[in-house]
Design a protein around this nucleic acid. Sequence first.
RNA 1: GUGGGCAUAGCUCAGUUGGUUAGAGCGCCGGAUUGUGAUUCCGGAGGUCGGGGGUUCAAGUCCCCUUGUCCACCCCA
Length: 444
Amino acid sequence: MSTKPNLIQPRTLKGFRDFPPQMMIPREALIATAKRVYSSFGFSPIDTPALEYTEILLGKGGAETDKQMYRFEDNGGRDVGLRFDLTVPFARFAAQHIGQLGTPFKRYHVGLVWRGENAQRGRYREFIQCDFDTIGTVSPTSDIESALVIHSLFRELGFERFTIRINDRRLLSGVLESQGLVERQGDVLRALDKLGKIGPEKVAKELIEGAGLSAQEAQAVLEFSALEGSTGEMLAKAESLVGDSEAGALGIASLRELFRSVEAAGADPARFALDLSIARGLDYYTGTIFETFLDDLPGIGSCCSGGRYDDLAGLYTKEHLPGVGASLGVDRLLAAMEELGMVDGTSAPCPVFMPMLEKERDSDYLALAMELRAAGLGVELYPEPRKLGAQLKYADRRGFRVAVIAGSREFDAGTVQVKDLVQKSGQDHGRKDAPAAIRALLGV
RNA sequence: GUGGGCAUAGCUCAGUUGGUUAGAGCGCCGGAUUGUGAUUCCGGAGGUCGGGGGUUCAAGUCCCCUUGUCCACCCCA
């Protein structure tokens, strides 16, 4: 008979992660910033279930997302799947509730999504998206405001060097239309998306062998994607390539207005770039497309992507519900910020630390801590009397900025010592004056 | 799903053509120091060398499998 307990190895699934406080605190701060920015543009919060009927999700993102979807039969025999993004469930939500919501409807949504693909840096199987979308209007103003939301968001998160790459699917559609190649759009888009990575020769090869284009057609498509120059110049050249296609003309006009408007609105024009090669792998986009890259870490991929999808909700309702919005990749961005040294690694959940010196006075400590909390100051009371140096080290490591130190001496005299943990200096104050002294140190 | 690189203490890593009891720095805990974080000194804990199998007198080291991780592809947040 074995005397050893049969321990289960503690572990998480591949691509699924635990979050200790020093990760969770910046993650929550990032989400709080996103919510603040979204709200300031008039987006309201919603939530939807993680699990949906498979028929709601299947075939909405494309062959790839279908393959990556976590799908199973529930205990009631229903065919169900975990959502792989927040846009498809939102389209379902809007189709179901639009009668009560009215249009236009603007929502933001923070939630976990799941994709069963191989994990890499900045790529996980379970990750948070933080979406904002406007549904029920085709107004270009919503496209423009979407770009402005992304701009404000990255600014508020502390980024100066980022680029919002913008394209419009109608441009390529126009080129394809004028070449009579509309049905091949999906394959062509996917091939073009690789332009920056594998170069024009290989893309041409893929266009011919993969998408079945003639050499001449491939050349026209490539010429379009490789356009260079200023935004104005590129748009002028693109205009000639889309020929008399109506969709192409609309796309050109829309992009012109967008670039003009974001600048007129006061955003930094250097943060926006026309990029005719970005395509977005998800099939539901129909117009404007956004991808946001960090100039200092482009390799991690797009941290905020989106665009206009005018037909998605049409899968669930006969009502026309065009939409536009984007998705912030919280976990990818967090990985990037960590790599760029933008997270400080501390994990103090509140500003004030209170060491315990004498166990016999613990009700005095509890009362003092409550007194400070009532004054609006978060306090962590150390639960046992250890050497003061050790307790201060504990506080220091967690990033506390202020310690409130008291023992019999202070309790009997009705004072406390307020210590600046950064400057390493302390000063005695009467208990009533302590909150003000702490606030002065915190600069609030 | 495909191809490749890694896996040794909590962290970063040494470890020679296979050869005695697997090391260092940092960190952690205790003490010098009964109420103040550094430095210094002393002491301590912590490893089935990712897991399994094989070759060998002998494997951290070589071979196979497996798991994890990273990179590239695919795709994407």
